[in-house]
């Protein structure tokens, strides 16, 4: 693997008696799309929060482009180039779509004209061009997901963390979402995606990490993952393992 963009080394995190993440290590190469899969409560979102800086891990360290980022906080992580979406969508509901995305664009833009221009481009890229003056709270669920991505994209991230962006979408919407992810990669953005429905994820990703009960179950190419007995067991239960 080339010099990794992100290196996770021995990350552990517990909430009270719940071990959300146990000794997780892996690396992400620049330009890669990595899938993070696992059943409910596997610790996917927890790990996302740690990478994005909003949770401090109990143990372990994270290097982003060679810099240690564990413990520096969400704000600093965002400024270094880590963008994210949330599993439960968070939009700025008193603002329009354009204004939401401008907030992100203001990370680099000083003046509002520049922010507006940058936001407009990102909005078009994410397929929200017709809706830029709609109040965020009026958007449909899939459009809200697009809004979150557009907003994160406006900060010009090098790494984008997408938490269950395809969940709850119709097949058509999901296909559009997947196209958007491919377009993002074409822009040179490295992506980590969380999803627990494997079928939608596998055609999209270069590599997958499977988490279960806080631990890394395994890591590999999509084709290897689906055949692995541990994965089948974790997802379907013991009786399906031949």
């Amino acid at each position: 693997m080339a010099e990794p963009l992100l290196a996770i080394r021995g990350i552990s995190k517990s909430f009270g008696s719940v071990a959300a993440n146990v000794d997780i290590s892996f690396e992400v190469a620049p330009g890669e799309i990595l899938g993070l899969i696992g059943p409910n409560g596997a610790g996917k979102s927890s790990l996302f929060n740690i990478i994005a800086g909003s949770i401090v891990p109990d143990r372990g360290e994270i290097l982003f482009a060679g810099r240690r980022i564990s413990g520096i906080g969400a704000v600093a992580c965002a400024r270094l180039g880590i963008g994210r979406t949330f599993q439960v969508v968070r939009s700025f509901d008193s603002m329009t779509v354009l204004e939401n995305v401008m907030v992100g664009a203001f990370l680099h833009a000083r003046r509002s004209a520049a922010a507006m221009r940058a936001a407009g481009e990102v909005i078009a890229f994410c397929g929200l061009a017709g809706r830029q003056d709609v109040p965020a709270h009026r958007l449909s669920p899939p459009d809200k997901r697009r809004l979150e991505i557009a907003r994160a994209l406006a900060t010009r991230p090098r790494l984008l963390l997408l938490d269950e962006m395809l969940t709850g979408l119709t097949p058509t919407e999901a296909r559009e979402g997947m196209q958007l992810v491919r377009d993002l990669r074409a822009q040179g953005i490295t992506i980590i995606m969380v999803e627990h429905v494997m079928e939608v994820l596998l055609p999209l990703i270069d590599r997958a990490i499977v988490l279960d009960l806080g631990r890394k179950l395994l890591e590999g190419r999509p084709a290897e993952i689906v055949r692995h007995p541990d994965v089948i067991r974790a997802y379907l239960g013991d009786r399906y393992v031949a």
């Binding site: 949330f86 939009s91 603002m95 907003r151």
Partner: peptide, 22 residues
């Protein structure tokens, strides 16, 4: 202005604001 956008973001959703570097 930039500040105004940041403040409204802080009002609407602190976690999302942080994730955008505010």
């Amino acid at each position: 202005s930039r500040w105004g956008f940041f403040w409204r973001a802080v009002k609407d959703d602190v976690a999302a604001a942080r994730s955008l570097g505010i």
